[in-house]
Simulated assay, not measured.
Amino acid sequence: MNALIITGGESPPAKFLSALALSADLVLAADSGFDTALAAGIDPGLVVGDFDSLSDRGLLYGLPAARVLGYSRDKDETDTEIAIREARKRGATALAIAGGGGGRLDHLVAILRLFERGDPPREWHTQRESSFFLAAGAMAGFSAAAGSLVSVFPLGGEICEGMESRGLRWPLEGLVWKRGDFGVSNRSLGPTFELRAGSTPLLVMLPLGGELLA
Results as ranks from 00 to 15, higher is better:
Ala3His: 03
Gly8Ala: 15
Gly9Thr: 05
Ala14Tyr: 06
Lys15Glu: 14
Leu17Ile: 03
Ser18Glu: 12
Ala19Val: 08
Ala19Leu: 10
Leu20Phe: 10
Ser23Ile: 02
Ala24Ser: 15
Leu26Phe: 15
Ala30Phe: 04
Asp31Lys: 05
Phe34Tyr: 15
Phe34Thr: 04
Leu38Phe: 01
Ile42Glu: 05
Leu46Ser: 04
Val48Lys: 03
Gly49Cys: 00
Asp50Trp: 07
Asp52Val: 08
Asp52Gln: 02
Leu59Gly: 01
Gly62Glu: 12
Pro64Gly: 05
Pro64Ile: 07
Ala66Pro: 01
Ala66Gln: 14
Val68Pro: 04
Gly70Ser: 15
Lys75Met: 04
Asp76Phe: 03
Asp76Ser: 14
Glu77Cys: 00
Thr78Ala: 10
Asp79Trp: 09
Asp79Phe: 04
Thr80Arg: 02
Ile84Leu: 15
Ala87Gln: 04
Ala87Asn: 09
Ala92Ile: 11
Ala94Ser: 15
Ile97Leu: 15
Ile97Ser: 01
Gly101Phe: 02
Gly102Ile: 08
Arg104Phe: 11
Arg104Met: 13
Leu112Val: 07
Asp119Val: 11
Arg122Asn: 01
Arg122Cys: 01
Glu123Leu: 10
Thr126His: 01
Gln127Cys: 08
Ala135Phe: 07
Gly137Lys: 10
Gly137Asn: 10
Met139Trp: 05
Gly141Phe: 02
Gly141Ser: 12
Ala144Trp: 02
Ala145Glu: 14
Ala145Ile: 06
Ala146Asp: 06
Val150Cys: 10
Phe153Tyr: 13
Phe153Pro: 00
Pro154Met: 11
Leu155His: 05
Glu158His: 05
Glu158Arg: 14
Glu161Ile: 05
Glu161Met: 07
Glu164Met: 10
Leu172Pro: 05
Gly174Asn: 09
Gly174Met: 11
Gly174Tyr: 05
Val176Met: 10
Lys178Ser: 13
Arg179Cys: 08
Phe182Arg: 13
Phe182Gln: 10
Val184Ala: 15
Asn186Ile: 10
Asn186Thr: 07
Arg187Pro: 03
Leu189Gly: 00
Arg196Leu: 11
Gly198Asn: 09
Gly198His: 02
Ser199Asp: 10
Ser199Asn: 03
Ser199Ile: 07
Pro201Leu: 08
Leu203Gln: 06
Gly209Gln: 04
Gly210Ser: 10
Gly210Phe: 08
Glu211Met: 14
Ala214Glu: 13
